[in-house]
């Protein structure tokens, strides 16, 4: 029971990644709309930033999985 709650709390890290990726995407859409010729560079930076922001969510997921599998 408590392990499940702990795993759920660990997965809450996904909130940060969601907000971060959302903000980054919004800004990049804005930037592409302003300067369509720079799309290549912008999407490259967006992909990199998204990957880095997503990492926190992945850490939360790995921790949650470890909690469920190891503390069971």
């Amino acid at each position: 029971m408590f392990t499940a709650i702990g795993a759920g709390i660990a997965v809450l890290t996904g909130v940060g990644a969601g907000i971060g990726i959302g903000l980054a995407t919004a800004k990049s859409v804005d930037a592409i709309a302003r300067q369509p010729e720079a799309e290549g560079k912008i999407s490259k930076a967006l992909l990199l930033g998204s990957a880095l922001a997503e990492a926190t969510a992945i850490y939360g997921f790995v921790i949650a999985l470890l909690i469920i599998l190891l503390l069971k």
Partner: peptide, 16 residues
């Protein structure tokens, strides 16, 4: 650490 965890977590996460 972040390189290996990112790859592993993403593949495993997609699988789960």
């Amino acid at each position: 650490l972040s390189l290996c965890m990112r790859l592993f977590g993403n593949v495993l996460g997609g699988f789960v």
